[in-house]
Design a protein around this nucleic acid. Structure first.
Lengths: 199, 199
DNA sequence: GTCTATACGAAGATAGAC
DNA sequence: GTCTATCTTCGTATAGAC
């Protein structure tokens, strides 16, 4: 459920902190920020119970910021890979496929940790800025790809913001419905909008 | 904060139940489902503490279903009014204005109760079907308006789903950023997509 | 770094008086 | 219909031993 067991060589920080962050991102996406307890994160990550405040001295808020950054990168990574080809439609599909896969693999339990944190008050999450940065980062990266393929700068910025908002919304709708209809429809219409912007 | 003090003549059910539902919808939107306690709802609605299980025998889950229905209608009402004119662009703007107003009036604390319930597990909310019905209801109503203005049926359905997903997503992004940039950009691009679909 | 124990408040829900 | 009191579980967070 967690995915890869770290293993990489470039990992900074302890494995424990990394595992806690991964689990928190997954669980916040599935159950929401307030709906996820620190006990849940510890149990899911199979990490030592006594050490969570050692690794996250800032408590749940620090964990939330880290989880949002992690979730943001989990989307941005595959999208950036696809964007290297320079084709915004292919990039869009990599993005959609990421979520379609996550939803189907999890029997429609998966969700966006960034969105989950964004809809709860800053006083509780302490991670509003991290959520805003995640949304902005996705949009700016996609806007650059759009611009590189011939879309004017301001149009590209608007279209990229539409894409971020629509995909985040479509994941929630798909989850509520228990099918990928919303994600599929949104993908098709975003594709049409991008095509229209390029001519 | 609550809005109107009921007062209407067509109200079914007690005023107390109605007030509790209103406050729950508002608070779920602001703080999320798990982030909102029954105590919060009672305090915000200034209703009798001892009677919440009298009015909502099904507990928090029943309150969630009712709050989602209420929140859905709160959007659908103004949108339906605007749709009577037959112009999908004007209808879109009524929808956007609803959220822009709610965000600005609340200093960017407002949020969608439907989305908030949709992203938490059915086992906790007991209101997944209500959330899906709300999303579908919005989309079908807007698709009908699009179709009435010359957009082909299937295209209208896709475009309406894009609109629902993008607006719900944009409200969350706007909230995280503390400005209406996302909502404004999304509105402008949806407008362009609708214009393109009509010719 | 990790442990157990625990503080302290709040969660949802129920019982029974009025 | 509404009250108060309470049950039980859980939340985050901390202290101090190891």
């Amino acid at each position: 459920m967690i995915g890869v067991i770290a293993g990489g060589d470039g990992d900074r920080g302890t494995d424990v902190r990394e595992q806690m962050t991964r689990s928190a991102a997954l669980l916040f996406g599935e159950r929401g920020f307030s709906g996820t307890g620190l006990r849940d994160v510890i149990a899911h990550s199979s990490t030592p119970r006594g050490s969570i405040y050692h690794h996250f001295a800032g408590g749940k808020a620090e964990l939330a910021r880290e989880a949002v950054r992690h979730a943001a990168e989990e989307v941005a990574g595959p999208v950036a890979d696809a964007a290297r080809g320079g084709d915004p439609i292919a990039t869009l599909h990599a993005w959609l496929d990421h979520w379609r896969g996550a939803l189907e693999r999890s029997d429609f339990h998966a969700g966006s940790a960034v969105l989950a944190v964004a809809i709860e008050p800053e006083e509780q999450t302490g991670a509003r800025a991290a959520a805003a940065a995640a949304f902005d980062g996705w949009a700016e990266a996609f806007a650059a790809t759009l611009h590189g393929s011939g879309v004017k700068r301001k149009k590209a910025a608007r279209l990229a913001t539409l894409t971020v908002a629509a995909i985040e919304g479509a994941v929630a709708v798909s989850r509520a419905r228990g099918d990928t209809l919303a994600l599929d429809r949104v993908g098709r219409e975003l594709e049409a909008a991008i095509d229209a912007a390029r001519r």
